[in-house]
């Protein structure tokens, strides 16, 4: 198990010191994410799902327990470019073209000019934006901007993709479409994906495993292995298997809230 696990958390704690006293954002989180997994984190606000992802990305420092990414500390993993991170907002620079935005991490990491161009072309193709490289962000729709930001996270070929509610700000039709695209992309690239979401159908549709979390303190209440096949057309969401998983997620979320 351990040579398969790319992200391993054991008894992870994180306590924020605020003006109102200590807030326990994560408490005793144990989780192994295996290579090639698509793991969704779902739960109400304040349950620590985003915080967990930020710990993996070394954007927050845990106050207790252990966390390894590719067998390294999160800080070392970042230096080894182990992951790409996608935020809720696309965060494209308005003064750079789409291609320029995707090239940005490559410039920072010191890729050669020729390789930069080659990689930009490749990932634009991957997210179905070929031909849009010369456009500026404001010329693209919100969905296309988010695809460009995914391309940017993929451009330097990290094994792990961390996504923090990447489609949260988009309307449902665009969201469905991007979910479908994301699954195809995951299948083609074989990346390990950690995906934070508020939406039960989104989590069930996308994931091989669903991590249900609850707040105060942020902790894992259930981990559900999805019985759904790898091939998932959008109408799989009407099958009994899908509804059963969704039901279990909903139960888990309710249980976490029971003593609120």
């Amino acid at each position: 198990m351990s040579d398969l696990a790319v992200i391993q958390a054991k008894g992870l704690d994180l306590t924020f010191q605020t003006n109102d006293g200590a807030v326990q954002a994560l408490k005793g989180v144990d989780l192994d994410i295996n290579r090639g997994d698509f793991v969704s984190f779902i739960g109400p606000s304040g349950c620590g799902k985003t915080t967990f992802l930020r710990c993996v990305a070394a954007l927050e420092t845990p106050t207790g327990g252990s966390l390894t990414v590719n067998g390294m500390s999160p800080e070392e993993a970042r230096q080894a470019r182990a992951y790409g991170y996608v935020f809720q907002a696309a965060g494209l620079y308005p003064w750079r073209t789409i291609a320029g935005n995707i090239r940005l991490p490559l410039e920072i990491m010191g890729f050669s000019k020729a390789e930069q161009n080659e990689r930009v072309e490749k990932v634009l193709e991957l997210v179905d934006l070929a031909g849009f490289g010369g456009k500026f962000p404001w010329q693209l729709s919100g969905g296309m901007q988010q695809r460009a930001s995914i391309a940017r996270a993929l451009s330097f070929d990290a094994d792990i993709l961390l996504m923090d509610e990447p489609f949260g700000a988009l309307d449902e039709i665009v969201r469905d479409h991007l979910n479908e695209e994301l699954l195809k992309l995951w299948e083609r690239t074989g990346k390990t994906i950690g995906f934070v979401t508020h939406s039960i159908p989104e989590a069930v549709y996308l994931s091989t495993r669903i991590v249900v979390m609850s707040p105060r303190p942020g902790r894992i209440t259930d981990v559900i292995e999805s019985p759904l096949p790898k091939e998932r057309p959008l109408d799989i969401r009407d099958t009994p298997e899908f509804l059963e998983v969704a039901h279990r997620v909903r139960e888990g979320l309710r249980a976490g809230h029971a003593y609120d």
């Binding site: 990305a57 070394a58 954007l59 970042r78 230096q79 470019r81 992951y83 790409g84 991170y85 935020f87 907002a89 965060g91 940005l104 991490p105 920072i108 990491m109 330097f156």
Partner: peptide, 14 residues
């Protein structure tokens, strides 16, 4: 630049 812009830079180890 927003905290998110700066976080992005950090994820690239800039």
């Amino acid at each position: 630049p927003t905290p998110m812009d700066l976080d992005l830079m950090r994820t690239w180890n800039a």
